[in-house]
């Protein structure tokens, strides 16, 4: 029985559909990454599951209880939603005590979570004196208060220094290994890749992929990176490869070709026939970032647009 199951879950805000007919299942245990571009509906999905907002249509179950009755499972969930939220004039400890009282949790547990996130020594300081990273730790401490079976963390490494990020990643892995389910929403794909077992990718409120991380990368296949001798030939090379049936993307001075390593020689031949000499030709496995960008249609910010798609878009013919 999955821990979370959504069925045609939809949430509209006026004319905007934030979550659209979402069918998602998340199994118990492990660390699950929830990724998608800004505005893809991640936070709305989290708020729906936590009972903070109500769906427009569809349904969802969490711990076998409908999300219309979040009280049935609230005690089993800890969450950090968007950014840490505290009264700035209260100390870290007082803020946590206030939440602990609401949940009926002892003060001893407050000490435990402060120690877990490394804030025990500074727990009497007002939260307003904390750095962004310390506030983030405090937010994680609040999420850990109920000793939750399901932990939902939205951008948990925001504002943390590299050492802090490693600590949080280690903590997430530990929690996942203990049999808890941890859902992590993050823009940092390297963090997701390092910490998560499974992944759910959303865009425009729709689920694009759900399953093991390895399956996603494998599904995306390999690619060949071709580097023309003259940088200005990159665009022409990509166009030439697209006309021969490959999917090619210009990234800086390189051309990424969606093709297995066995087709590298064919790519080289095609370049030669187009009168372009290659300086390098490297078979590569697609990274999660590449897969994500390809899947969500996002630009990598370095001229990474699919040539074929651009041509057809220009003609008003839609995506390739």
């Amino acid at each position: 029985m999955p821990l979370i199951r959504t069925n045609k879950l939809t949430r509209r805000f006026g004319h905007v559909v934030a979550v659209r007919d979402l069918d998602l299942e998340i199994a118990r245990g492990g660390v699950v990454g929830l990724v998608g571009p800004n505005g893809s509906g991640k936070s709305t999905l989290i708020r729906l599951l936590l009972g903070l907002i109500r769906p427009t249509s569809g349904s969802a179950m969490v711990f076998d209880a409908p999300i219309s009755h979040p009280r049935a499972y609230a005690a089993r969930i800890g969450a950090l939603i968007e950014s840490p939220a505290f009264l700035p004039s209260l100390s870290a400890r007082a803020n946590l005590r206030s939440l602990a009282r609401l949940r009926g949790i002892s003060n001893a547990r407050v000490n435990d979570v402060l120690e877990t996130v490394g804030l025990l020594e500074r727990s009497t300081e007002p939260a307003k004196h904390f750095s962004l990273g310390m506030k983030q730790r405090l937010g994680i401490a609040a999420a850990l208060l109920p000793d939750p079976e399901l932990l939902v963390l939205d951008e948990p490494t925001n504002g943390l220094d590299p050492a802090g990020m490693v600590e949080i990643r280690t903590l997430l892995r530990r929690l996942g290994d203990e049999g808890r389910t941890v859902i992590v929403s993050s823009h940092l794909l390297s963090e997701i890749e390092a910490a998560c077992d499974t992944l759910a990718v959303v865009r425009y409120g729709e689920l694009l992929f759900s399953g093991p991380l390895a399956d996603l990368v494998a599904q995306a296949g390999e690619c060949v990176e071709a580097v023309p001798e003259h940088q200005q030939d990159a665009g022409r090379l990509a166009e030439s490869l697209v006309t021969r049936g490959w999917k090619a993307t210009v990234r800086g001075e390189n051309v990424h070709v969606a093709a297995p390593a066995s087709e590298a020689a064919d790519v080289n031949r095609a370049a030669a026939q187009a009168g372009i000499t290659l300086r390098a030709l490297r078979p590569q496995e697609a990274s999660l970032e590449e897969v994500f960008l390809r899947m969500t249609g996002e630009s990598s910010g370095d001229n990474g647009r699919p040539v074929g798609a651009a041509e057809k878009d220009d003609e008003g013919g839609g995506a390739s």
Partner: peptide, 17 residues
């Protein structure tokens, strides 16, 4: 102040009643 500091989402998540 519960809204201004975003605390309301923590409170409602902890006590959905």
């Amino acid at each position: 102040s519960d809204y201004a500091h975003g605390l309301i989402r923590l409170l409602v998540q902890a006590e959905p009643g």
